[in-house]
Design a binder for these strands. Sequence first.
DNA 1: CTGAAAGCGCTTACAG
DNA 2: CTGAAAGCGCTTACAG
Lengths: 338, 338
Amino acid sequence: MNATIGDVAARAGVSVATVSRALRGLPNVAGSTRERVLRAAAELDYVVNPNASRLAAGRNLTVAAVVPHMQGWYFQAVLAGAQSVLEGQGYDMLLYSLPTPAARERFLTLLPFRKRVDGVLLIDIPLTDPEQRMLAGLGTDIVSVGERGAHYPGVSIDNVSAGRTATEYLLDLGHRRVGLVGGLLEDPMRFRVGRDRREGWLRALQEHGAVPDPSWEFYGDFRLIDGVRGMDTLFSAHPDLTSVFCMSDEMAIGALRAIKERGLRCPEDVSVVGFDDHEVSSYMGLTTVSQPMHLLGRTAGEILLSLARDEDIGHYPRHLPTSLVVRETAAPLAQHPR
Amino acid sequence: MNATIGDVAARAGVSVATVSRALRGLPNVAGSTRERVLRAAAELDYVVNPNASRLAAGRNLTVAAVVPHMQGWYFQAVLAGAQSVLEGQGYDMLLYSLPTPAARERFLTLLPFRKRVDGVLLIDIPLTDPEQRMLAGLGTDIVSVGERGAHYPGVSIDNVSAGRTATEYLLDLGHRRVGLVGGLLEDPMRFRVGRDRREGWLRALQEHGAVPDPSWEFYGDFRLIDGVRGMDTLFSAHPDLTSVFCMSDEMAIGALRAIKERGLRCPEDVSVVGFDDHEVSSYMGLTTVSQPMHLLGRTAGEILLSLARDEDIGHYPRHLPTSLVVRETAAPLAQHPR
DNA sequence: CTGAAAGCGCTTACAG
DNA sequence: CTGAAAGCGCTTACAG
């Protein structure tokens, strides 16, 4: 169990250099020699010491995955996607979670991944331009998922287009007053997804000749409670809203609750479209926009591996496709509106 | 950015041995020397190379966390709890997920954590006795969360007691026919939590003189859809059931849905108690049993660190407390039952 | 309190 | 195709 490469070499009757080559499948090893080495290694139950191997080779065979927090199934799916390609190539994954401003600050100043990873996967981590520049200057390969940077490659969905699709669906159902319940837009450090989804909503409305009033919009924090508040706020100002586009399924679920508490029905009185295709959404019959989380992670992982191998990443897909999942919370505008 | 300990030593005018000691805060370094070293390290932006350090010291400063899968907020909370104590002590965490039988098999045969971690955190990983013995024989410290092993320490909740509490709550509300919707019990490889929660349910009923019929029980897979099926099955056989204890909140949400689809109301017609206190449960008003996931992870992490330091773990808390969260899905037995 | 030196377990030119 | 040897960047007795 604690055999070293020297033990294997002795048992196989070759040098440690040959063992090293044979075990790693390098060429220039005679078939019979390789067999002998493999057998000796198996008999001794030998596994390479990664610390020694990495130190000698100057490669870490490890990737850092950075997420805003570990809540919600979204990040898990992205991480699982990345894992699936990385572990196949023998890479370890180190997880860094930045749920608080303090954690974010520490990560950006301590740079705890230095000398310990070959690449960094930034998963929906918004960074200022100087921060991006600093990270990119570290010499470690960086790939982003979702939130993009100007100084490293990334994959994401097209949030403008997705927001437009969701809104157009409601417009096609005959709705004209489409409220928006979304994530914070003011804070430059916040996710840019909110801005883009709003942009899609706005364009769809304008193309249909609708003139959205600023008070059709409410912004919270992507959470369920923000959906409740948002719906209440919008309804108070505009009791005549017949539909709403929510920037997350959690917000949509909150909106559903608020609608019910007002004694209204969905979709008879108000139509709702969400965003994410959360795992409980199908059970709530929520019409929503689905995004390919697992594929986002996998694609980012593949790009990072190419970078690590100094391969040309050529033109990879910057945007991965989303799709509208039609279920039961959006319906044609009622003939006799309230 | 790529300064080595030698660079720091040169700049500080001392030997690398002294730099090593000073940077790690060991005693036997003169105050003034330490200051000089710290300054030199800061100026060179030096960080230790973990591969070299671990190789030389013979410690990995890394812990393996093994989870059945990465879905659901439960595992995230436990992992976050463990992280919180480990990262404070400079430990990295390597995540192993075993979502398929193949992954489980690979993990148990390849033992990919060998030579790369100082300890293993088994989070709800059921193992046969030979498997436990094999892992324990590897010489790596092991601590379990949830699912226990006979060959290593572990923390969990008291599922028997929690199941009893949930059931007693319904009994105290006047219910006598309390159905059970739970996780698989037959498969010896499955979580034992199901068996224990059933045991609690059974004892509570018996203590109240109720005689549970075998057809009061339904077993699925802890998922929402199993809750739907379970409720349908139980109702078909026993339309007179007035309440049900579900072994997970997801099952309970499924049960709620099935109840609604039958044209019944909760809690007026049927009372429901879940298990977990899932993040959406509060919004559904679900009465449920809450367990201290973060604390479970933290406690396990602390035990593992003690083990790594060869400290005596003495008598640690084997069971962490659960609590009943009373909300709106369970009510007193109706005066005029259906 | 400090330094010289061996050693951790590998990989990789370099020779042959 | 194979081996001897240097080197990766640290830590740790051992001396002083």
